[in-house]
């Protein structure tokens, strides 16, 4: 299936939260495609799923099922039905409310989370099993002036707060709630490591972790930003159900991104752009 996607399709991945809302050519084109599968009804039904379509916008097939043999069958069917038609150029201007480009001078850090230890209840559910070993992925942006502070041997408070509020989360099963400013109960982080304690307002979610870090510069350029956090997490969010019933050990790892197309994906927390940049 991977070879099929590599060679016979142009593969794209998007966060529908942006395209559902954007009032621009990309948003309109997205709605044109997805509404051929089911009516576009924001707040009523999600546009999440898989779509195979011709470049001019004709939907070949749309589905929302990760069963691999079925997926392969759908892709082959879409290829059989595909007839190339020239697509008109669309306006490249974007709705600035939903534009998320890497800030000038910023670096991208890959962020991964994983449940390291947990007392899971038994399950035969084949949909649940992979979620127990899955890895959450995100990106951290370190801004230009924050890099300068790191070079001077100081981890700025703004960066520490961004890491705590938007990245010390359990995103191994979906979209988790971020931490509000008042939910950061303790935070101490420097270039070697530190500690953090987070607790939701209702006390249903908590994370207390110790951190270790290694930051290095070469010729004035940030060449290493390794950071790990490990501690006890408890609770779940509306979109991260099926957490372990009791406290579990969560690990979060940060390391500089190697760049490329995937690094362009904005941090999940950047939906709240102002809050993310100045947490």
């Amino acid at each position: 299936m991977i070879e099929l996607l590599r060679t016979k399709f142009v593969a794209a991945a998007v966060d529908c939260w942006y395209l559902d809302r954007a009032k621009d050519a990309a948003g309109e084109f997205y709605k044109k495609v997805v509404s051929q599968r089911q009516p576009f009804e924001p707040g009523v039904r999600s546009t999440q799923g898989f779509y195979a379509f011709a470049p001019e916008g004709t939907l070949l097939l749309g589905w929302n099922n990760r069963n691999v043999p079925r997926m392969r069958e759908y892709l082959e069917r879409a290829l059989r039905d595909f007839k190339p038609v020239a697509a008109e150029a669309l306006d490249a201007a974007r709705d600035p409310r939903f534009q998320r480009a890497i800030p000038e001078g910023a670096v991208v850090v890959d962020v991964y989370s994983k449940i390291l230890e947990a007392d899971w209840p038994p399950t035969d559910d084949e949909m649940i099993k992979p979620l127990r070993v899955s890895i959450g992925r995100d990106h951290l942006w370190i801004l230009k002036d924050e890099i300068e502070a790191l070079a001077a041997g100081r981890l700025p408070e703004r960066l520490a707060k961004r890491i705590a509020r938007y990245h010390l989360i359990d995103n191994t099963r979906g979209e988790p709630p971020m931490w509000a400013p008042s939910e950061v109960k303790e935070l101490a982080l420097d270039l070697k490591g530190g500690r953090v304690r987070l607790e939701s307002g209702d006390g249903d979610r908590t994370f207390a972790a110790a951190m270790a870090a290694d930051v290095a510069f070469r010729d004035g350029k940030l060449v290493k930003f390794d950071l790990v956090a490990r501690g006890k997490f408890s609770g779940e969010g509306k979109f991260t159900r099926n957490a372990p019933p009791g406290p579990f050990t969560l690990g979060v790892a940060f390391t500089l991104s190697k760049g490329g197309e995937v690094a362009k994906v904005a941090p999940q927390g950047a939906r709240d752009l102002r809050g993310y940049l100045v947490p």
Partner: peptide, 28 residues
């Protein structure tokens, strides 16, 4: 999305789109 569409048009291929609430390649 539009870059993918333009590339597919140029190469005479269909687009395969993976759309999730939370970016499939980077957010969850």
């Amino acid at each position: 999305l539009l870059e993918a569409r333009d590339l597919a048009s140029k190469e005479g291929k269909p687009v395969f789109l993976w759309s999730m609430n939370g970016h499939p390649l980077g957010c969850t």
